[in-house]
Structure formats: C-alpha cells, structure tokens
Design a protein around this nucleic acid. Structure first.
Length: 264
DNA sequence: ACCTATGTTGATAC
DNA sequence: GGTATCAACATAGG
C-alpha cells in the first residue's frame, strides 16, 4: 500500500517512538530485503548506536545514527513499520498476529523493544547509506515553478510522468488516479501538452490528495478508489469509469470529465 | 487448479 | 535521453 502518505506515517511513528534508544543489534538475515549487504553487516554497523532522526523524501525513508551510518528503509509494495508492536501507515493495523515470517528486518533495542519491517512480499528494503540522488523533489515540497518545469514536458502520458520518482517523489498508482480525477485531467494526455493553469491545478490536486490521505490514514481513503472497478460510475457526474494500462499500471478515470478515451 | 491482479522499482531494449 | 516492457517477490481472489 505504501505511497507517500503511508511512508510519512511510518516516518512519524519512528520519530515518535524509536529515536534515542540504544540499538542492541539488527536482524538482517534476509539478504534479499537487505541487499546488497551480507548477513551481519547492518548489525555490525548499528549495534551500540542510536537513531537520531527519521527523514523521508517521496517513498524513501532514512534514519541518521550517532555512529555515522545511515539506515535506509523502503516499504516497497506491501511493507509497513511497527515499533514495539504498534503499526502505522497501513489500513489494517497488523492484527496481533501477522505472520511472523513476514518480519523481514528488525532493529532490536537494548530495552527489549523492536522496530520491524513487516513485508509480505519482500519488495521492501533495509540498507545502509542509501543512494537517494535519483529522486526528484518531494511531492509535498515541490514549488509551483518546479512542478511546471519538471512535470510539464515530454511525450509520456501525464500519469506516467507524475509517477516517475525522478520527476516528482512520492506519487504512486492510486494517488495518481485520485489527483488526476480531482483535477479533471486525462491520464493519457502527453505531459508536454499541459498549460501552466492545468499544471498548477494538478499540483494542487496532488498535494491535497496527499495531505488528505495522511490525515485519513492512507491512499486507499481516496474518493475514487472505491470506483476503480468494472461498471463503476464517476461519483461526481455519474458517467462510466473506464480502464486502461498507463505507464504500466492499471488506470481508472471518468470517461466524461477526463476526456480522451482509452488508446486502442 | 489455474490464471490474474496487486499500493514499487530496477534492469533491460528500442 | 526518453519511453516502454518485463521481472523481482508472495499472496489473494475469481
């Protein structure tokens, strides 16, 4: 589920509950999730240290430590963070019993508590000193000028453009559908065709959708999310919702308000 | 049972 | 360089 809002809630959870606690060790035995590290490398780098900050850009998180190394965390497609058993940033709070096999990485604190990366699919990541140089500006911080210049160019479909993390960091599949629907813009329209007024409207919609999702608990709380299925109607005008693959992802939009029919 | 779908991202190919 | 496609993972649902 994790798009920017879920990641922000996870970051806030870490900031509130994990900073300053002595790390006794790390369980980094899952070498797929902790790649490119060998088992024991993260543990060796962090044992005895304390997290001093919890930061985020787009969907990437990282924690600085008083020992030097930075711990990078990414939730991938199904990851969530829990600290001492309390989870944030996901619709269904891990009911007491999420499968223990889904705990892919953990920081064990000297006080007995733990910070855990829970991830059914193992597409999340935990690693040292992550490279974040390829990320564009965070979707909540991007200025109007930056947004116009970075999003309003290229031949790629508008939706693919706003989901490109190098252009703008944080927007995923559901947020993209939500923001485009709120702004009344066609997902398939080439990004470079947009005018400044449309780009400003889209930026407002992206930021509003993100802030609302953070408040309400996740991207699944979006207005069109329940209407992303066959035979659904646009909750604003009643026209049929239509579907196509855009930028490699399933995309739903209002046939009337968001113009441009599905290509082929 | 078999096939498809799933909130991400990276590596590849044109 | 920009854009598109596929694969990585593991589960859930028709």
């Amino acid at each position: 589920m994790p798009e920017l809002p879920e990641v922000e809630r996870a970051r806030a959870l870490i900031a509130a509950r994990a900073l300053g606690r002595e790390i006794a060790g790390a369980d980094d035995r899952d070498t797929y999730v902790c790649r490119p590290h060998a088992p024991g490398e993260i543990d060796g780098a962090l044992a005895g240290a304390r997290l001093v900050s919890a930061c985020r850009r787009g969907k990437s998180m990282w924690c600085e430590t008083d020992a030097g190394p930075v711990l990078g965390l990414h939730l991938g497609m199904a990851g969530r963070i829990a600290v001492d058993g309390a989870s944030e940033g996901d619709p269904a709070p891990v009911p007491a019993g999420g499968n223990p096999a889904w705990e892919r990485f953990a920081l064990e604190f000297a006080d007995g508590g733990r910070l855990v990366l829970i991830d059914k699919r193992r597409l999340g990541r935990a690693l040292l000193d992550p490279d974040l140089s390829g990320l564009g500006p965070d979707a909540l911080d991007i200025t109007r000028e930056q947004f116009r210049a970075r999003v309003g160019r290229g031949d790629a479909p508008l939706k693919a453009r706003i989901m490109d993390q190098a252009v703008l960091a944080g927007v995923g599949n559901l947020l993209a559908d939500e923001a485009l629907w709120q702004a009344g813009l066609p997902p398939l329209r080439p990004a470079g065709e947009l005018g400044d007024e449309e780009l400003d409207r889209l930026r407002r919609a992206v930021r509003a959708a993100i802030r609302r999702a953070i408040r309400r608990g996740g991207v699944h709380t979006g207005t069109i999310v329940p209407h992303r299925h066959r035979d659904a109607a646009c909750p604003r005008c009643g026209a049929p919702m239509v579907k196509a693959t855009v930028g490699g992802r399933t995309t739903w939009w209002c046939a009337a308000e968001q113009g441009r029919p599905a290509a082929s």
